[in-house]
Nucleic acid binder design. Structure first.
Ligand SMILES: [Mn+2]
Ligand SMILES: [Mn+2]
Ligand SMILES: [Zn+2]
Ligand SMILES: [Zn+2]
Lengths: 139, 139
DNA sequence: AATATAAATTGTAACCATTACAAAATTGGA
DNA sequence: TCCAATTTTGTAATGGTTACAATTTATATT
């Protein structure tokens, strides 16, 4: 637990979120596990600490976080949603072999957005898929 | 029906797909309706022609088309999958107001993919969301 | 402290797109 | 025509997500 409870409380308050027990724990989990976890990943970990935890609470919390823009939804997986506490602009690469999701930096400024000039762009989602270096090496 | 039956047959054969009745109809629909339809969109239209049509057949056909790389999956909508017969490299913009999905050209060559150098990239999916020009005008 | 009110959390059922799978229908060749 | 392979259908199951009312917890008031 690298991300301390006090930091979590402060962070939530700064983003206009009342720091409840579950919100603090979810935020800590996201800050400590930046590997784009699913709802189930988070639930399975937190149920250890909070035996009464409901999966609905994880959904509620993430929905709240999304609304406050402190997490981003990563829909690179067709089955279940993933969540990313890193809201800086970056792309995601999913390896079809090991299923790992890699972050990579992007430079959208010269991507070329002439066709949608005059549109308001709120979110840019960049999803790549293929085979990662590690998997290529071991084959 | 701009895309003729004979052209559809030829196209399917060229891509190693046996041209069955349903496959031909689905391909024609996709060629004539490039607005990224859902399974239900396709089903609702084709059921008019083929009263015995099963929705499973649409799923089967699209799964086959995906495997043969003649359609792309567009996952910009969180609820249901969309399909695109245009497999050329382009991005998708979804307007949160009118829900229309726009195509736009991209230039991934200067997007910056240094972080995943050495990876095999099979697919690039670029999803934007925001408000389109038309919706901005009428508000 | 006790009470009242609001907010957070839980539990359960429903939703619904997608998948699994076996039965039925169709196709094409011998 | 007969047979086997392929295609298509119908139905049930799956599973992530959502709706929502009940319960619990936090906060404010007296
Ligand atoms: Mn990320
Ligand atoms: Mn498109
Ligand atoms: Zn890999
Ligand atoms: Zn619009």
């Amino acid at each position: 637990m690298a991300f301390k409870t006090d930091s979590a409380k402060k962070y939530l308050k700064e983003h206009d979120i009342k720091p409840s027990t579950i919100r603090i724990k979810v935020l800590q989990y996201l800050k400590d596990n930046k590997h784009h976890p699913t709802v189930d990943d988070i639930y399975k970990e937190l149920i250890e600490d909070i035996p009464t935890l409901s999966k609905t609470s994880i959904y509620n919390t993430l929905e709240l976080f999304l609304g406050k823009n402190i997490v981003n939804l990563v829909s690179i997986d067709d089955k279940e949603s993933r969540y990313d506490i890193d809201t800086s602009a970056h792309g995601h690469f999913k390896c079809k072999s090991c299923n790992k999701i890699y972050d990579f930096n992007i430079n959208t400024s010269n991507l070329g957005e002439e066709d949608i000039k005059g549109f308001i762009i709120n979110k840019r989602k960049i999803y790549y898929e293929g085979i990662c270096k590690d998997c290529l090496k071991s084959s």
